[in-house]
């Protein structure tokens, strides 16, 4: 028999709260994905099954939602996720230079994770601080007016 991964107590309690706020269980699926990702950093196939089981949905349905949204990760990510804005104001202000510098420092490209599993680098749509472009987020921290020469110091704080 295949091994079924279960939701933890913490996850179930948080999902139950979300279910209490919506008319039917299925409507809590995005919240459930967020809750599980917060605990496990990414959403594995086993997590999809566990959520589907808990919300009485098919796994395919849960996966169709999970894969739709940019910030639900269906592959493992590193300890810290770097979201570099690649939208228009940051394009004009030279996000490309920041991308090149990050590639050089971390030896990874967009969509990849460093060998030590510390950083995953992803492009992100406009972060809504275009008057301080180029911008990036690391986990939940926003960095504005990013300059190449600041990168070492910024990254050091996450090591």
């Amino acid at each position: 028999m295949e091994k079924k991964e279960l939701l933890t107590e913490i996850e179930m309690r948080a999902i139950d709260h979300e279910i209490s706020l919506v008319p039917y269980k299925k409507a809590a699926v995005i919240e459930a994905l967020k809750i599980v990702q917060k605990q496990r950093r990414w959403i594995s196939d086993e997590s999809i099954d566990a959520i589907a089981n808990y919300l009485e949905m098919s796994a395919a349905e849960v996966d169709s939602v999970a894969t739709f949204y940019n910030l639900i990760f269906r592959k493992p990510v590193g300890k810290h996720v770097i979201l570099l804005c690649d939208s228009i104001s940051c394009y004009v202000m030279g996000y490309g230079r920041i991308y090149q510098a990050l590639q050089k420092r971390l030896s990874i490209q967009f969509g990849q994770t460093t060998k030590d599993n510390l950083f995953t680098l992803l492009p992100n749509v406009c972060l809504g601080c275009c008057d301080h472009a180029p911008a990036m987020m690391i986990d939940e921290d926003l960095y504005e007016d990013v300059k190449e020469e600041q990168l070492d110091k910024i990254l050091e704080a996450y090591k």
């Binding site: 967020k34 939602v65 749509v125």
Partner: peptide
């Protein structure tokens, strides 16, 4: 009144897509 934070997709700003996102569906 509730706060709902999205999980990132430009199309969620379109009002009917936003409704689908709030209902836990693809937006």
């Amino acid at each position: 009144m509730y706060l709902h934070t999205g999980v990132g997709r430009y199309i969620c700003g379109e009002e009917t897509a936003l409704l689908n996102a709030l209902e836990g569906k693809r937006a």
